[in-house]
Design a protein around this nucleic acid. Structure first.
Lengths: 224, 224
DNA sequence: CCGGAATGTCGCAGGCCTGTCGCAGAAGGC
DNA sequence: GCCTTCTGCGACAGGCCTGCGACATTCCGG
C-alpha cells in the first residue's frame, strides 16, 4: 500500500482528510506541524507528501524545502483560498502540485494519483544519450564533459523531446508542450528552434546525432 | 525473477535499497565495493547492475568499464547530488541511466524497469511480421535487422495496413486514411504507393511477403 | 486461345517539406 | 535607460516526394 504523509495543523481537516484518503486506499501518516512532519518522514519514508502551506513553527514552504533537500519525494501543497499566489509562484521550493482548500477528497485522491504517475513516468534525474547529459533537476546540459548553455526555449524543447527518447513528436505536440497554451503560430517556429538547438548540440547538424527529423511527421530525440 | 546486482559501499543505503528492491520483486545481490561487485557479477550473472559512482578501491567508473568489457549488461549509475557531471560525461564510461541520490525506491524501480525494457526491446508499440519490425512510436522500420527508410506516404500506408493485419483495405479506404482530406484523385495512386513500398520491403515484389494484392478489392498486410 | 479489365512498372516535372539566414521587436539584466 | 540576448517571422533555396500519364504485364471469363 502506498504511503502518504499528511501535514496539516487544523485537527478537523487533518482527521477528515486522513479518513477519506485511507478509504481511497492510501496508508496515511498524519502530522500536525512541520517538525512532526519531518520526523515522520524519516520514519515512514512515504511515497508522497501532502503539505499545508500555513503551519505553526516551520511553515509549509520551509518544510517543503527541507523535504526536497532530503529526497525527491513528490509534494502536493494545500493552500487556503486567497493565500498569496505570488508567493507560491515565486517559491523555488517547488511543490509538484497545488490544491486549494477546501478540497474534496475525491479531487485530492485524483491529484495524488496524477502526481505519482508523473513522478514514476517522468522521474527527475539525469537523462543521457551519447555524450549528452541532461540533468532535469539542476537543468544543466553537458556535452562531452563541456557545459552547454541553452536558452529557455531550447531547454524546454530538449527536455520535452528527451522525456520520451525515440518517440516522434509532431510539430503540433511540440508547440503545445514547449510553447504551451495552444500556441497558434506558424509551425515553422519548431523548425527554427530545432535548428538553433542543433547548432549547439550537433557536430554536423546535417547529420544530427541527437535530434532527428522524421520527414512528414516531426522530430525525435535519441538513437535511431 | 530478475536478478539485480547492487554495488554500494554505504551499508545503510545498500541495505535499504536491497530491501526496497526485493519488495519490488527483484532478486538483489548486494556488494560493498567494486571488487566484490565484479566477482559477484561472474557468479550471479545478473540482468542489470546498479552501481554507485563513488566506491572504495575500484571506483564506479572503472567498475562500469570493466563490466562493459565483459558483457552487455545494462548499468544504472548512482550519483550523489552535486557530483561533478563533467567528470561523468567526460569519461565515457557509458552507463545506461543515471540516478541522483538520495533516490526513492519507487523511482529506482521505475528506472530499472525502463532500462530493462529498453535493453530487451520490449515490444511496446511494436508490430512485427516475419523480419519486419514497425515501431509505431519512434516511427522506425526494421527489416531483418536493417533499418529501412520510408517516405511519409509509404510510412502512413504501412502504418494503416499494419494496424489491422490480414484485413483487406479497399483503395478508397486507403485514399481516405493515408491521403486524408477526401482525396479525389485517381485510385491508381494507391497502386503506385504500394509498388514503391514493396520495392523497399519485398525481396521479390512479384511474390510479396508483406503486402498482398486482393484482386478486385484492394490490399492486405500480413500472412495469407 | 482471346479480349478486356485490373494491376505492375517506369520516368518526369512540379511542388511540398525542411534547412538556413537575417531582421526587428520583445524581454531581461545591469 | 541602455545594451545584450532571445524569439518570432518571413523569405529563399535545395532536395526529395509524389502525382500523373503511359506502357507492360498478369489475371480471368468466355
Amino acid at each position: 500500500m502506498t504511503s502518504v504523509l499528511l501535514i496539516e495543523d487544523d485537527p478537523l481537516v487533518r482527521r477528515s482528510l486522513e479518513l477519506a484518503l485511507s478509504r481511497h486506499g492510501w496508508a496515511v501518516a498524519p502530522a500536525q506541524d512541520g517538525e512532526e512532519g519531518l520526523a515522520l518522514f524519516e520514519q515512514k519514508a512515504p511515497e508522497l507528501v501532502v503539505l499545508d502551506l500555513m503551519l505553526p513553527g516551520i511553515d509549509g514552504l520551509e518544510a517543503c524545502r527541507r523535504l526536497r533537500e532530503r529526497a525527491q519525494v513528490p509534494i502536493i501543497m494545500l493552500t487556503a483560498r486567497g493565500e498569496d499566489l505570488d508567493v507560491i509562484g515565486g517559491l523555488e521550493a517547488g511543490a509538484d502540485d497545488y490544491v486549494v482548500k477546501p478540497v474534496q477528497p475525491t479531487v485530492l485522491d485524483a491529484r495524488i494519483r496524477a502526481v505519482l504517475r508523473r513522478a514514476v513516468r517522468d522521474p527527475e534525474g539525469i537523462r543521457s544519450h551519447k555524450g549528452l547529459l541532461i540533468d532535469t533537476e539542476a537543468l544543466t546540459i553537458t556535452l562531452n564533459g563541456e557545459p552547454v548553455s541553452l536558452t529557455p526555449t531550447e531547454l524546454r524543447l530538449l527536455l520535452t523531446l528527451s522525456r520520451a527518447p525515440r518517440r516522434v513528436f509532431t510539430r503540433e505536440q511540440l508547440l503545445e508542450d514547449v510553447w504551451e497554451y495552444g500556441y497558434l503560430g506558424d509551425s515553422r517556429l519548431v523548425d527554427n528552434a530545432v535548428m538553433r538547438l542543433r547548432a549547439k548540440l550537433e557536430e554536423s547538424p546535417s547529420r544530427p546525432e541527437y535530434i532527428q527529423t522524421v520527414r512528414g511527421f516531426g522530430y525525435r530525440f535519441g538513437p535511431v
